[in-house]
């Protein structure tokens, strides 16, 4: 059962972190911050439908997935600021955090190559006798790439336990008049579109993960986002309207999260800069 307050807390933390990082980027203290494009609710609701042993293959805009799974705010700031303790050792650009312990794959750029990695990972897990599922995110632009079609083809043929979630921002692109959810049909993959509502997303991801776990193969979910609406604000308002949170509690939550973010930022600022020795680290395993 999805707790809407937990969803709100995760999504709001990610939003506030992005806002703080974006301020630092505008002040040229850190590099470019890939925006989640207001899709935090999709990421949280989908990620919370997974078992702890399942994997997430995020795009570079989905870095908040690592946050939901327990990576500290401090780690994000250390990466952004190039401080000791950066989990990527100064190597990844912003948005590029991965974590094996949290089962978060390394996001790909510029193409959504990670969708194909998700297939290999799911395949490997099955070969090792594990009932693990891979949740792979991309966008409406990603579905135009060859990697997307490679991923659908391989996962469709071998009935791999991968759940693809496409965040459709509704950006006008020239494309054939086929809904994204139907792009899997030629590969034998069922699809479904879903409104940008946490409960609905959580439900469809949970059920598609379960069928994938039972050997019924991949599934394609299209979540329709509207660029004109901020879904997080709308979600906050709906929780207030439903009496699930008061305006005062929401304010307090926001204040506490901002305090956590400021404290993490301060702690990262005080950390030592990455040493020169860590820059240009050996490109091979030691």
């Amino acid at each position: 059962m999805l707790d809407p307050i937990v969803v709100l807390e995760h999504a709001l933390r990610a939003r506030l972190l992005e806002e703080r990082l974006s301020l630092l980027a505008r002040a040229r203290h850190i590099g470019h911050v890939p925006s989640a494009q207001k899709a935090e609710l999709v990421l949280v609701a989908a990620a919370l439908a997974l078992e702890p042993s399942d994997w997430i293959a995020p795009s570079h805009r989905d870095w908040a997935c690592a946050l939901f799974r327990g990576l500290s705010l401090d780690a994000f700031f250390r990466q952004a600021l190039g401080r000791a303790g950066d989990p990527t050792l100064g190597n990844a650009s912003l948005g590029g955090i991965s974590a094996r312990a949290l089962r978060i794959l390394s996001p790909s750029l510029p193409s959504p190559a990670h969708l194909v990695h998700a297939c290999g990972l799911a395949w490997a897990a099955r070969l090792r006798g594990q009932r693990e599922v891979v949740l792979a995110f991309t966008s409406e632009s990603g579905v135009e790439s060859g990697d997307f079609h490679s991923a659908l083809n391989f996962s469709g043929i071998h009935r791999l336990p991968v759940v693809f979630v496409v965040k459709n921002l509704g950006v006008e692109l020239p494309r054939p008049p086929v809904p994204i959810r139907e792009k899997g049909i030629a590969y034998g993959i069922e699809g479904q579109s879903c409104p940008n509502e946490p409960e609905a997303i959580h439900r469809v991801v949970a059920s598609s993960c379960e069928r994938a776990r039972e050997g019924e193969g991949p599934f394609l979910i299209e979540v329709e986002l509207s660029p004109k609406v901020d879904p997080l604000r709308a979600f906050e308002q709906s929780l207030i309207n439903r009496g699930l949170i008061s305006a005062e509690s929401l304010f307090a939550l926001r204040r506490n999260l901002l305090a956590d973010i400021s404290s993490a930022y301060q702690s990262a600022l005080e950390a030592l800069p990455l040493s020169q020795g860590s820059i240009g680290a050996e490109p091979y395993a030691l």
Partner: peptide, 13 residues
């Protein structure tokens, strides 16, 4: 591209 991409996923696992 699919062959190598899938192999990467397997290797990472």
């Amino acid at each position: 591209g699919g062959i190598v991409g899938v192999a990467i996923g397997m290797a990472v696992y």
